[in-house]
């Protein structure tokens, strides 16, 4: 019963926020660019949530998250181009299929690389990210539509407020319930001590693999939404720096904190994109000087993230 009450509260909150955003957009005050970055911020939150499941909850460090985001984006864009989809009823199954495909790739590469730990896992995922970048750069040899290093052009602009907002909310609720489930318990146990978890009978490899697949699935969904929001994809949008973006969001929000990831994701998009409206470009250059310093300071003062006091959930 409590579960349904909490769920109802969340759904009401989401509807309330949706109505406010809709009203603000309806009033005609925000420009197209502002609406676009608002939608974009939901997509970033969704993808970062995926990384938080992998890294924050399960403790498996990944530097290749943007590669999965990119796989989702390219797959969904390719599907919608080939199937000539123009309405958002058609887009939902396409994005879902792209997510499934991303999850499948994650299953194939997760099997071998999740046997590695810490920094070696980081290097392996980083390597996967660069591999995907190389494949995307040469993708016009596979199919002319994908565009290779010239970029994928001419995707229909379908993603709207309802789609990005409600898909994100839906997966936030799913993720929250997964974290509270048996699997979530396994994940948190693995993060705290993998050896101890396996000694009490948790199949740590399977649990890690499921976390990885689920996290990458979310990245794939987010990528699908992104592709149909910006209508142009380029391999350089999905390189190491993008993965580091997601990582910074998870760290600022706090490892293993869903609300932290949401706040940090929204804040991040505002910081990177939103400040363009307010500040001139000479000052904007200094963002990337400031961000690493903040990152280093967080690691020194609060190694488990800005918004959680202690490690764990």
């Amino acid at each position: 019963m409590r579960f349904f009450l909490e769920l109802r509260k969340l759904i009401f909150l989401a509807l309330f926020i949706y109505l406010i955003i809709k009203l603000v957009i309806f009033s005609g005050l925000p420009t197209d660019y502002m609406i676009q970055i608002t939608l974009y911020s939901f997509i970033i939150v969704l993808s970062s949530l995926g990384l938080n499941v992998i890294y924050g909850f399960t403790g498996q460090f990944s530097l290749g998250h943007a590669a999965f985001y990119g796989i989702g984006a390219y797959t969904s864009a390719y599907l919608s181009k080939v199937l000539e989809i123009e309405s958002y009823y058609g887009l939902i199954p396409v994005i879902f299929l792209a997510g499934i495909f991303t999850a499948f790739i994650a299953y194939i590469i997760g099997g071998p690389i999740l046997r590695l730990k810490d920094d070696f896992l980081a290097i392996a995922t980083l390597g996967f990210g660069i591999l995907v970048r190389v494949i995307l750069d040469n993708s016009d040899r596979i199919s002319e539509v994908l565009g290779g290093s010239r970029g994928f052009v001419g995707i229909n602009k379908i993603t709207n407020l309802e789609l990005s907002f409600f898909i994100t909310v839906f997966f936030i609720i799913i993720t929250k319930n997964l974290i509270d489930s048996r699997f979530g318990l396994f994940w948190r146990a693995i993060k705290n001590d993998e050896l101890a978890a396996s000694s009490i009978g948790v199949n740590t490899f399977i649990a890690k693999l499921i976390a990885f697949i689920y996290g990458c699935f979310l990245a794939g969904i987010a990528g699908g939404l992104y592709a149909h929001l910006y209508t142009f994809l380029h391999p350089s949008n999905f390189d190491i720096l993008k993965s580091i973006d997601f990582l910074i969001i998870v760290i600022i929000g706090g490892m293993g904190s869903i609300s932290g990831t949401i706040i940090a994701g929204l804040f991040w998009v505002f910081f990177i994109e939103g400040l363009r409206i307010i500040l001139p470009s000479e000052i904007l250059e200094y963002r990337w000087v400031l961000i690493p310093i903040i990152l280093i300071l967080i690691m020194m003062i609060r190694p488990y993230g800005l918004m959680v006091k202690k490690e764990g959930y």
Partner: peptide, 16 residues
């Protein structure tokens, strides 16, 4: 600190 914190700090230094 944990290994990963050190790695993230190194990434931070590199970006900086």
């Amino acid at each position: 600190a944990p290994k990963i914190s050190l790695l993230i700090t190194a990434v931070g230094v590199s970006l900086f």
